[in-house]
Amino acid sequence: MESANSLCPGTECKGGVLAHLERLEAQMNRSNRKSEEPTVREKESSLRTKIRELQQQRDRLRVEVKQWRARIGFLWVALAVLELFSGLKLRDLPRMPGLKVKESSAKEDSSKTTLSEQEVLEKQWRNLKAILQAYRFTGLSGKLTNRRVCVYISTAFEGNLLDSYFVDLAIEKPLRIHHHSIPAFIPLEKIATAYLQTDVQRLLFSLSEYLNAYVGRKYQADQLESDFCAFLTGPLQRSALCNLLSFTYKVEHGTQAFSFSARLLYEDLTAALPTGVTVTRPAGVEASSPHWEEHRASHEMLFRTKTLHQAFASFSKETEMLHLNLVS
């Protein structure tokens, strides 16, 4: 950097004017010395040439220096301005002599707060996102987009989280169901006619009741088929809504096996327990025992108050107990 100091502000001006004067002086001297010896003149002229060459070289270099300084000065100012706006600093940046950029500690602080603000916002974002997702545990969650709202209705039976369904509403007047995945046998149209324009919340809770009850009935029928098929003596018949189930089954009570035919009717479509239960003697099965009627009545009661798989679990428990008793 010291060498830069050699170029004091006056140099350029002195160089320009003085060089011109010098050149004029040299020309005068030359014409004055025409009478001098050729060797001296030659010597002198080679000296002159060298001086001229050096002068030209100096002038070129001066222009070059000027250009470099201008370019670096521009870069430096541009950097300083950018730093100011971005709040960033490149500490290892070479410094231009005479050009001082104000070092503000405020900039650093602002960059720090920017970062922590980002962190705070990200935390908030994660938190909100989690809460939005947690809505599925309430049974109703949704996604809001431009002029649309997609509501998800989740279903469960007892502790089992089961399928979820969606209703995509177009937010316009009148409110309209754009898409949905509600099974055809759920009376969506009836519910929508009743509540869509007046009380969307009621519509959704009503749908939720229907869907949860349906899923509950279906779950029970599925459980019966998968876990208690040993009791079944024929295929389980069910309606699409699973509101009518009929099956024949055989249960051991005491040392005897009894055959039954059951018909479960769920008149309340928002319920997972049947409203009408009839247990009868299957077609073609002879009257087996005087106890049959007792068991029939108790089974009817059981099906009315317990879920299907609970009822059958109690049958199998009874059978197990029986076997245990027989062993001991």
């Binding site: 170029l7 050096l54 070289q57 220096v65 470099w68 670096i72 870069l75 490149l90 940046l93 070479p94």
Partner: peptide, 22 residues
């Protein structure tokens, strides 16, 4: 001239660094 050449080299160097930083 020598001083100017030195300065030129120095500036050139500086420019390289600055534009690198840039």
């Amino acid at each position: 001239v020598a001083a100017l050449q030195r300065e030129c080299r120095m500036l050139q160097n500086l420019e390289e660094k600055t534009s690198g930083a840039w």
